[in-house]
Design a protein around this nucleic acid. Structure first.
Lengths: 150, 150
DNA sequence: TACAATTAAATAGTACGCAATTAAATAGTA
DNA sequence: TACTATTTAATTGCGTACTATTTAATTGTA
């Protein structure tokens, strides 16, 4: 090839682009299903944490989702406006904001059960491949944790 | 576990979240390096296509990057404002807008060569793992192509 | 106590992504 | 030729998300 010198910055030779493209495409595929719950993908993963933990501070939520308050504050206000959560400062330390699922929010969990079923037909990996993919992604994330600009 | 019924919508049991988180984290790691070239990540992948092809229509660029004109038009205008590309209608068919790299844009390629080197230290997969990851992502993308809301 | 440092959330500014609409050019057809 | 349909990209508007900065509360320390 004439410009081998530049091989490292060809789109096709980089790992990051398939990752970036695939991630966006999957989020796009979620959209029609999530629309029925009136949730964005980011709101959906926040609700997943809330369904599991019932009550969580913004900081804890951010640690779990790798999002900061700049993303979460407006997102949680929208979830509150939809009636899925309530937000209140903690008495013990007023810096902390505690987010709790409402009964409407809990009710949403039932509807959400449909989503993984609907997405299954969309992602064409068998279970072994999927878990392999997850472990590779996990390894990348662990590597990040070690050298830590966070 | 008490609520196995909901296992499918627990964050930890879903493949999409590691993918989403990992993709975002990698883009974040690119930022300090890309800042030196005054590029965002999306602008960077657009420049990669342009470095390789010298000249490309908006449509072709969008097909390669999986982005539409709503994203590309403002992005390309910014690249033009920085002097990295020029945009001009094609004589043969005036509907098509052709994007070409300028000499400043080409010069940027030299600087860009540093980026994969700098990122190497950041992503902790060995070559075999990386190519395995790519092939799994490719398989997902191919599956999407088959059932085609695009 | 007073002051500095730390922590948490909110805010402001920018980029991105999507949907819907518009405009222009070309292709197809009566 | 005239008319319609299709294609392509630009534009607009809106919502989401990320970064950097600011504000408020708490903790640690002189």
């Amino acid at each position: 090839m004439s410009n081998d010198k530049y091989a490292s910055i060809r789109l096709g030779n980089q790992m990051c682009f398939p990752l970036y493209a695939c991630s966006k495409e999957i989020v796009r595929r979620y959209k029609p299903f999530l629309d029925e719950l009136k949730l964005t993908y980011t709101q959906y993963i926040a609700m997943m944490v809330l369904w599991e933990r019932k009550s969580v501070t913004v900081k804890e939520l951010g640690e779990e989702l790798l999002l900061d308050s700049g993303t979460l504050t407006p997102l949680l206000k929208k979830l509150e406006a939809k009636g899925y959560v309530v937000r209140e400062r903690m008495k013990s330390d007023e810096r902390n904001l505690c987010v709790k699922v409402t009964s409407d929010g809990e009710a949403l969990q039932e509807k959400a059960l449909e989503i993984p079923k609907q997405m299954k037909g969309c992602v064409t990996l068998d279970p072994e491949e999927a878990s392999l993919l997850c472990s590779l992604l996990q390894k990348i994330m662990n590597g990040f944790e070690e050298n830590k600009p966070r």
